[in-house]
């Protein structure tokens, strides 16, 4: 399919299995085609992808197919932003971060792993006030479910049956907590995570070998900050 044919399909309001097939084909095209193709698709395609994701997230009763489509959409967004052009377009659309944060669901471990990795990557590219945008998106998303903004991340970190999710969540914690230049803000974010449940589970996390690198980063930065303090 050409990029315009995908745009037409997405605009036609297809859903369920037809949408899933279209999105899987789009994911492959976004991954394998040159950036110019992604560029062409992106003009209208990004907005349409976000529209579909928003529609799925707004559905009161989410069927299994809806969750599959959400996951496929996240994979399309990741493929789309895997180049400088797509990344700039995603960061340029304020809905992107909010919809990514809203799609975080500790019960859907594979999708949450991918979302959290995307947010961590976006957080460390050094784009101006990106940290504030991510925190704002997480706050708004959490408030919709009457939760603290970091609660889903700590919940993901506790899931011993999903080690990839645990690693991704610890990466996001490190990405967020090391972002501020201001020492007080770094300490504030770290303490917020600790209060939100991280303090209680840190001792048991040491048992998980896959987390060694991220826990080392977390402790080193905590140490550096207390010395600076």
């Amino acid at each position: 399919l050409s990029s315009q044919e995908y745009v037409h399909e997405l605009r036609s309001g297809i859903s369920e299995d037809k949408l899933l097939n279209c999105l899987e084909s789009l994911r492959v095209s976004l991954t394998s085609n040159p950036v110019s193709w992604v560029n062409n698709f992106g003009h209208e395609g990004l907005g349409l992808l976000l529209d579909v994701l928003e529609r799925l997230l707004d559905k009161k009763q989410q069927e299994n197919i809806d969750k599959k489509n959400q996951h496929k959409l996240i994979q399309c967004l990741k493929a789309f932003m895997n180049n400088k052009y797509g990344l700039q377009r995603i960061l340029g659309d304020e809905r992107s971060l909010l919809l990514l944060a809203r799609a975080i669901d500790p019960k859907q471990t594979n999708m949450m792993t991918e979302i959290v990795k995307i947010l961590s990557a976006v957080c460390i590219i050094g784009e101006e006030n990106i940290l504030d945008k991510i925190l704002a998106a997480m706050t708004i998303a959490a408030e919709r479910n009457n939760k603290e903004r970091f609660a889903p991340i700590v919940e993901g970190l506790e899931n011993h049956e999903a080690q990839q999710l645990q690693v991704a969540c610890m990466q996001l914690i490190n990405a967020l907590v090391t972002s501020p230049d201001d020492l007080d803000f770094r300490i504030h974010l770290r303490n917020e995570f600790l209060r939100c449940g991280l303090k209680k589970i840190l001792p048991e996390l040491k048992e998980t070998e896959e987390l060694d690198i991220q826990l080392k980063v977390f402790n080193e930065n905590k140490e550096e900050d207390s010395i600076e303090l």
Binding site: V35, N82, K84, Y85, A121, I213, K216
Partner: peptide, 26 residues
């Protein structure tokens, strides 16, 4: 240079290895 793909992949590798966090503010 704008046509370079793999931007997210390399960011994610830097996160995975911990390299992303070394001297983040220097």
């Amino acid at each position: 240079e704008g046509d370079e793909t793999g931007v997210m992949d390399s960011l994610m590798e830097a996160l995975q290895s911990g390299a992303a966090f070394r001297d983040r503010r220097k």
